[in-house]
């Protein structure tokens, strides 16, 4: 089933594509020569040992790397046909269209409602209405829709106006996903979204990611190979060689687990089986 899906998607033009990408922090190269096409609607999992540049790679895709001092990116990233590494890119707009979820849930210290309404108003995604009341109503509809989408509505509908920090870790992470979704992005970048959650909450987020496919393209970093096997269409394996991160293999989930071509991949996935 997964092979069919990826076979269908690989022949079309990729939605997001890194070409000969290299990132360095000062003099130190975090990863180099990474070329990776990501097809529209797929879940691409990135796996590999700690420090091989997975997070650094992800942060290039929505230009969060701009915020790190002395961080330098070379190469090209094409998104819908334009190179987003060009200095003319509107990064605020880019980050609206490519959302990001972090390892540790990071809702703002505001109410659940405000967490969602703030980005919505900032990007002017709700059409201005004839009255303030109608405007608020429109915001409410968007909030309810997105909370239903992440399966949080029933749990928080009676506490929309109390602090988001009072939610459980799993609920906070789903709120953060909702906060990204409310901006109607095309791509979601998830950096180990489940690693701070307990197994049950983690399963809920996993299920949510599957439900969001193929409406959104998702790139997810995970240290949990079993999870990658469950949710990913394709898997990219990063590795450190000569102190630099590298993409050593990319393929369908089935191929990576059953017929890896690179010996490091073979060792990695067989170690992960136990």
């Amino acid at each position: 089933m997964t092979t069919m899906m990826s076979a269908a998607t690989t022949c079309t033009q990729p939605l997001l594509e890194a070409k000969h990408l290299q990132l360095s922090y000062g003099q130190q190269v975090a990863f180099h020569d990474v070329s990776l096409p990501i097809a529209s609607g797929e879940i691409m999992a990135i796996v590999g040992p700690s420090g091989c540049g997975k997070s650094s790679f992800l942060s290039c895709l929505n230009r969060m790397s701009d915020l790190v001092p002395h961080c330098h990116v070379q190469g090209e990233i094409h998104f819908n046909g334009t190179n987003i590494l060009s200095p003319r890119t509107d990064t605020l707009l880019l980050r609206r269209r490519i959302g990001m979820i972090f390892q540790k849930p990071n809702p703002f210290p505001l109410s659940v409602w405000e967490n969602l309404a703030l980005p919505l108003r900032e990007h002017g995604l709700v059409k201005s209405q004839t009255s303030r009341r109608a405007f608020r109503q429109a915001i409410h509809q968007a909030i309810e829709a997105v909370l239903r989408d992440v399966g949080l509505w029933e749990e928080v509908k009676n506490r929309l106006h109390s602090s988001a920090l009072a939610l459980s870790g799993g609920q906070q992470q789903r709120l953060c996903i909702a906060r990204a979704l409310i901006l109607q992005p095309e791509v979601l970048l998830l950096d180990e979204p489940c690693s701070a959650l307990d197994p049950l909450a983690s399963a809920v987020v996993e299920e949510l990611m599957l439900r969001l496919r193929p409406r959104y393209t998702q790139v997810v970093i995970t240290h949990n190979l079993a999870q990658a096997k469950r949710i990913a269409d394709r898997i990219a394996v990063f590795w450190v060689q000569q102190h630099k991160g590298q993409l050593i293999e990319v393929g369908s989930t089935q191929q990576i687990f059953n017929a890896p071509t690179h010996e490091l991949t073979a060792a990695y996935v067989s170690g992960g089986k136990g």
């Binding site: 929505n62 969060m64 915020l67 990064t91 605020l92 707009l93 880019l94 980050r95 609206r96 959302g99 990001m100 972090f102 990071n106 809702p107 703002f108 703030l118 980005p119 900032e122 990007h123 953060c176 906060r179 990204a180 901006l183």
Partner: peptide, 9 residues
């Protein structure tokens, strides 16, 4: 970080 990732000014 969260604010930047949402494209807030």
């Amino acid at each position: 970080q969260g604010a930047a990732a949402l494209g807030l000014s």
